[in-house]
C-alpha cells in the first residue's frame, strides 16, 4: 500500500540549520514549510557578536 509521494517538506526550527535545509530543499524543487516557534528566524547564531575565523558579524 503506497500512497502518493508528496513533494513538500516541513522543516522544524528556524535557526541556521533549519534555514540551510530549507534553502537547499526549496532550491531543488521541493515546497518547504519552515516552522519557527518565535517571531523570527535566525536562532542563536544571530545572537553571536562575531564568528570565528572571519570575525564576520554573525548576521
Amino acid at each position: 500500500m503506497s500512497r502518493k509521494t508528496v513533494g513538500s517538506v516541513m522543516v522544524v526550527g528556524g535557526g541556521i540549520t533549519g534555514i540551510q535545509a530549507t534553502l537547499d530543499l526549496a532550491d531543488s524543487g521541493y515546497y518547504v514549510y519552515l516552522v519557527e516557534k518565535s517571531t523570527g528566524i535566525g536562532g542563536v547564531m544571530s545572537q553571536l557578536d562575531k564568528t570565528f575565523p572571519t570575525n564576520d558579524c554573525a548576521m
Binding site: 508528496v6 517538506v9 533549519g18 514549510y33
Partner: peptide
C-alpha cells in the same frame, strides 16, 4: 501535507 520532515530545533 508533507512528504518528509527535517527536525532542527537546536
Amino acid at each position: 501535507n508533507v512528504g518528509a520532515v527535517v527536525l532542527a530545533p537546536g
